[in-house]
């Protein structure tokens, strides 16, 4: 499903050069739930962004469903992200000006074929799947952190992507809310076969995943 071959990422500014990833080889099978661990600054987020086609590696090859995406244009990458990938962030990144259901509809806006009522239906179903059907017309600021993260998950799964990428999804939540979010992710993985890659610092959570990828200083350590 996802294939990384000798991926490198170097950040260059006029003064310094930071190597964020060195020779990363990773293969994620469809339906897998894996976690990425490592100390702060070891390149976890960078790796996730490369997998999610948000960031272009400085070297190496990235393939999604067997298709190398290295030469794709901005527009084409956007389309692949839209159809295949859902993102969940540590700080939720909900748009405060929009209601819960409008937030969840965002990925669907960039699909040409959907009508307004179809979008609404898909968004409501996604909210249902995360157990938030009662709060659809609230604004993000009116929800608890755990609820906000569940809205963010609903947004990530609204378009039924095959891959979910989560960067420390429980990082800003207490352990009880964190467990709730973990339950939602596990259910998505088990019931619907969604492939999930999750960055976490929490061994309790990574222990529940099928495989752990460990990074140190931008290198895989296994």
């Amino acid at each position: 499903m996802i294939q990384l071959e000798s991926v490198e990422k170097v950040y260059r500014t006029s003064k310094i050069e930071t190597v964020a990833l060195t020779n990363v080889n990773l293969s994620v099978r469809g339906g897998e739930f894996i976690s990425i661990m490592g100390p702060s600054g070891s390149g976890k987020s960078t790796l996730l962004n490369v997998i999610g086609l948000l960031d272009v590696p400085s070297g190496g090859k990235v393939s999604i469903n067997g298709q190398p995406v290295t030469s794709y244009s901005d527009r084409h990458l956007a389309q692949v992200r839209n159809e295949a990938i859902g993102f969940i962030f540590q700080t939720f990144h909900l748009i405060n000006d929009l209601s819960v259901v409008d937030n969840v509809e965002i990925p669907l806006l960039y699909r040409r074929k959907l009508s307004g009522s179809e979008r609404r239906k898909l968004a409501l179903r996604a909210l249902d799947r995360v157990g938030l059907h009662a709060r659809v017309h609230h604004f993000p600021s009116q929800l608890s952190g755990g609820q906000q993260q569940r809205v963010a998950i609903a947004r990530a799964i609204a378009g039924n992507p095959r891959i979910l990428l989560a960067d420390e999804p429980t990082g800003n939540l207490d352990s009880q809310m964190g467990d709730e979010i973990m339950e939602v992710l596990k259910r998505l993985n088990e019931d619907e076969g969604t492939t999930i890659v999750m960055v976490t610092h929490d061994p309790r959570l990574s222990g529940q995943t099928e495989r752990i990828v460990r990074l140190f200083d931008g290198r895989q350590v296994n």
């Binding site: 999610g52 527009r75 956007a78 859902g86 990144h93 000006d97 960039y110 947004r155």
Partner: peptide, 16 residues
């Protein structure tokens, strides 16, 4: 910025 990041991540191209 956050809105722009989110929209891009979820499939909006720069032109959109």
């Amino acid at each position: 910025a956050s809105e722009i990041g989110v929209r891009k991540a979820f499939g909006a191209s720069s032109w959109t």
